[in-house]
């Protein structure tokens, strides 16, 4: 039919090999989960989700420290999560012996939220710490878990404050 048809067959063979090579390479290079949900690697979500957590969450804290949770419930700091002040403690929650939470310096800690600043909302309790306490640690008078100073049981609140 054609003259010198073997030229065309040779060309077709080369092209077929190229196509097969491309398909094999592509299958090897493109990850299996690519395109599972869209134009990205679906397995990436699982990898990102596999990261260990640093903050345990207050629900977990309260399973052991229910006494502190009860104290907090009596005051305005009920809305403040444990790790907002105590820092990330998922390691402590996993194995309480492995990590003891550090003692906190209330002069720094309380001021972070309660130091007066004109940009803070008016409803939020603020003090100029220099005038209010003159550098004395806040927990000398206030019990951080239930900060309102009750007039009557002063000895009790002091004892709690030392805890």
């Amino acid at each position: 039919m054609f003259k010198d048809i073997e030229h065309l067959i040779r060309l077709a063979t080369v092209m077929a090999i190229a196509v097969v090579a491309f398909l094999v390479l592509r299958a090897g290079v493109v990850p299996r989960s690519f395109g599972q949900y869209g134009h990205y690697r679906g397995a990436a979500m699982g990898e990102i989700a596999a990261r260990p957590i640093a903050f345990a969450g207050h629900d977990l804290c309260e399973t052991c420290h229910s006494d502190v949770a009860d104290q907090k419930r009596q005051g305005k700091h009920v809305v403040v999560a444990c790790e907002a002040c105590h820092g990330a403690l998922a390691k402590h929650a996993d194995d309480p012996a492995s990590l003891t939470p550090a003692k906190l310096d209330t002069t720094v800690l309380c001021a972070r939220c309660h130091e007066a600043n004109s940009a803070k909302p008016k409803w939020f309790p603020q003090v100029v710490t220099a005038d209010h306490s003159g550098g004395i640690a806040c927990d000398t008078c206030h019990q951080p878990h239930r900060p309102k100073i009750e007039t009557k049981p002063e000895t009790e609140s002091k004892a709690e404050g030392k805890k």
């Binding site: 903050f55 969450g57 207050h58 999560a81 907002a84 990330a88």
Partner: peptide, 16 residues
């Protein structure tokens, strides 16, 4: 890694 485990984000957790 937190929200897929039923926790809230770290920033929301500590927002006082």
């Amino acid at each position: 890694h937190r929200i897929t485990k039923g926790l809230t984000t770290a920033c929301c957790e500590v927002c006082p």
